[in-house]
Amino acid sequence: MARTTAHAPGRLAWPVAVLAIAGLAVLVLPIIALIVRAPWADLPELLVRESVIAALVLSFGTAIMATAVCLVLGVPLAALLARATGWPTLPRRLLRAAVTVPLVLPPVVGGIALLLLLGRRGLVGSALEQWFGLTIPFTTGAVVIAQVFVSLPFLVFAVEGALRSADRRTELAAATLGASRWQVFRHVTLPLVAPGVAAGAVLCFTRALGEFGATITFAGSLPGVTRTLPIASYLAMQTDPAEAVALALLLLAVSIGVLLGLRDRWLPGVRG
C-alpha cells in the first residue's frame, strides 16, 4: 500500500506540496480565527440588537428581491445566450462579454456606473426625476439594483450550462405533440433545467447577500434603508468590534449553509 502511494504518478513534488498547503492556510486560517475569536458568550445578546436585526431584515429582504429579479431576467437571458451559438462570432462574443463584465469588474466601479446611469444627474436618472419625480440612489430599491447588477451573471451562467447540456430534441418532441413555443419552454425546457436554475438562484442569493462595494457607492449606508449586513459589519468594526464579528459570523453561517446545500452542483456554468 505504502509502496503504491510512493510510486503513484499523482504524487506532488515537495515544493509544490508545501506551497499548496500554504495556499490552503491562506484560505482557511482567517475563517478559523473568526470562529475562535468570536464573542460566543455575548452572541445571543449581540444578535438581537435593534441595529443587527434591522441590517438582517434589510439584507435578507433585498437579497430575496434581487434573486427574484435575477430569476425573471436571468433565465431568459441564459436562454438567449444558449441559443446564440448559431450567431456570427462578433455579436455572440459581445453578448457573452456583457454578461461576464460584472463578474470581473470591481463592485465599486459597478456602483459608480449605476450612479452615472440612475443618479439624479445620470443618463436615465435625470429623466426619471424630471418626469416621474423618482429618485433611485440611496433607497432600498438602489440596494436591490446594485445586488442584481453583481449577481445576475451567476444565475445566467448556471442556467446556461444546464440549457446547453439538455437534449434539444425533447423540445422538438414537445412541438410535434402540439406544444407552442411558450408551452415548450414552460413544460419542457424549464423543468429540465430546474436544478441549474435552483443552483443559480442560490449562488445569486449569496452573492447579493454579501454585496458591499456597489451597494455602498450607489445606495449609501442609511440605517434600516440601505445599511445591509456587510456594510453594518464594516461600520461596526470601528465602534463595536464585537457586534462586527457577530454580523460576520452570521454571514459566514449563511455561506456555509449554501455550500453544503449545493455540493456537487457547484457552478456548472462558470466552471465550464
Binding site: 430534441r169 425533447t170 422538438l172 414537445a174 412541438a175 410535434t176 402540439g178 407552442s180 429540465l192 430546474a194
Partner: peptide, 19 residues
C-alpha cells in the same frame, strides 16, 4: 409550425420527457 401539422413522431432513442 410542427405543433399545427398533425404529424406524430417517434424519435430515434424515443426522446421521452425525462422529468
Amino acid at each position: 409550425p410542427p405543433e399545427h401539422r398533425g404529424i406524430g413522431v417517434v424519435f430515434q432513442d424515443y426522446v421521452l420527457f425525462p422529468h
